[in-house]
Amino acid sequence: MTTATFSPQHTRVLADLIPGARVRDVALVLSGTLSIALSGFIVIPLPFTPVPISLATFAVLLTGAALGPARGVSSASLYLLLGVAGAPIFGDGRSGWAFASFGYIIGYVVATLVVGTLARRKADRNVWATLGLAALGSLTIYAFGVPWLAVFLGVDFVTALAYGVIPFLIGDALKIAAMAALLPVTWRLLNRTGRS
């Protein structure tokens, strides 16, 4: 998991700017997991769907972009494994896997891979590319969350979309816009200080 050498195909992500190697990577993975878990506790239940609004998706996208694919996937996977093992770290203090929004949590792992890979290719350095990176990450989470929701509730795909996508589009648009502002600005600041 060391990231000591870089080729043009292996561009640095924000986490690579921190000195160290293995200890840094372990600390970053644990920090990513903690960030996802703490953000997951910020939930707004909606009366018309079993899926709450959560800041965890924003933390997942940022974790993937800032840590890169390997560390991002490790963070999201650790979050998933701890929750399945019984740690009450999912939204509303849940654990296990038998609940309507668990598919989204599976999607977190894949989304960190997608977003982290795109960040390695510098898709987090300008507004338009970051909009695409964040939108693709969000779609990846939905790609796992909606089918799980449909099966878990025993509803058709259109109903699952109504429960698991439509109510969250405005919030996701805000999260995507926030990422498109935050990441390129961070890179610009680092470029000015000569740290990138």
Rank of each mutant, 00 (worst) to 15 (best):
G83V: 08
V84Q: 02
V84M: 14
G86N: 12
P88I: 11
I89S: 06
I89E: 03
D92W: 11
D92R: 14
D92P: 04
D92I: 15
D92G: 09
D92H: 15
R94W: 09
R94M: 11
S95M: 12
S95N: 14
G96E: 08
G96C: 05
W97H: 08
W97R: 02
A98D: 14
A100P: 12
S101Q: 11
F102R: 04
G103R: 00
G103H: 01
I105Y: 01
I106D: 00
I106Q: 00
G107P: 06
G107Y: 02
Y108R: 03
Y108M: 03
V110W: 01
A111V: 12
T112Y: 03
L113Y: 14
V114Y: 01
G116Y: 13
L118H: 07
L118F: 12
A119S: 13
R121Q: 14
K122A: 11
A123E: 04
A123D: 01
A123Q: 09
D124K: 07
R125F: 01
N126M: 03
N126I: 07
V127I: 15
V127R: 10
W128L: 15
A129W: 03
T130Y: 00
T130K: 00
G132R: 10
G132D: 07
L133T: 06
L133P: 03
A134M: 15
A134Q: 09
A135F: 10
A135K: 06
A135Q: 03
L136Y: 13
G137K: 04
S138A: 14
S138M: 14
S138E: 14
L139W: 09
L139F: 14
T140P: 11
T140K: 04
Y142C: 06
F144W: 13
F144V: 04
G145W: 06
G145V: 12
G145K: 05
G145C: 12
V146R: 05
P147E: 10
W148A: 10
L149P: 00
A150P: 05
A150V: 13
A150R: 06
V151L: 11
F152T: 07
L153R: 01
G154W: 09
V155M: 00
V155N: 02
F157H: 11
V158R: 10
T159N: 03
A160R: 00
L161W: 00
A162S: 08
G164C: 03
G164Q: 02
G164W: 00
I166G: 08
P167H: 15
F168E: 06
L169H: 13
L169R: 15
I170M: 13
I170N: 05
G171R: 06
D172T: 12
D172L: 10
A173V: 13
